[in-house]
Design a protein around this nucleic acid. Sequence first.
DNA 1: AGCCAGGACAAGT
DNA 2: ACTTGTCATGGC
Length: 277
Amino acid sequence: MPFPLIIYRMEILKKDINIFDSLLCGQTFRFKKLDNNLYEVFSKDEYATIKDEGDRYIVNTNNEKYFHDYFNLNVDYSIILNELRKDAYLKDLIPTNNVPLRILKQDPFEMIISFIVSANNNIPRIKGIIERICINDGKSIGENKFAFPEANKLAKRDVKYFESIGLGYRAPYILKTAQDIASGEFNVNAILSLDTESARKKLLTLQGVGPKVADCILLFGYNRYDVFPVDTWIKKVYVDVFNKDNKPDQMRKDFINRFGKYSGIAQQYLFFAKRGK
DNA sequence: AGCCAGGACAAGT
DNA sequence: ACTTGTCATGGC
């Protein structure tokens, strides 16, 4: 058989995570709403459907372990959220007793490519581009379902190809970064052992990765919570929170100084509240 | 029609 | 080190 027949049925309680909002808050682009109470989600070369059943979700997948990890269920959010609720501005945004947004645990390479695509771009278009990347170069993981491609697959393409799928001026960035990673010149796994500041510096050497994209990669791909991606929405939030304008890097420092080691999680609540669904 | 999007880059101070 | 202009595409 081409595809595994064994499908696991996981139950995840809503008190532990708001899965739909966690998908919608801009950290992943590979999901689709199939129905009011049914979503599908892709990550790396894995696939799952998530159904809302009242007080819980039913997750169907052939890789239970992967998605338990993906939804980050082993991290205790009650401690984190209690800490963040002490902040006067955040306390109104964070539900008092349940349903946390969680930072998903995603694949570093997938995050690097995805957030280069995201630069100066809008979410619906980002989703379309990433879908085309997967359809054209990802291995088949089911009927009309495709994995996120390996670096060496993307490295064999050329700039013209990436332009043809809508990447615009980002086309050479994607190619160069895929090639650097495929050749081993940039080691994605070496980031794991670095402290956050060193990791950030290293990521900034990649073409198409600037301060904001590096922070997204660190937060969503490496689960470093002590970063704070500053995008156009967060710039608006800054004015609300601090009652003044500022430069992006100063905003980042001010936010981290305020929210501490869980800044990245605070950022998700702020981003989601400002941008909406 | 025109502004904007989960900004980065290179050239010029 | 910091500022500015430019970048391709399409969603709204």
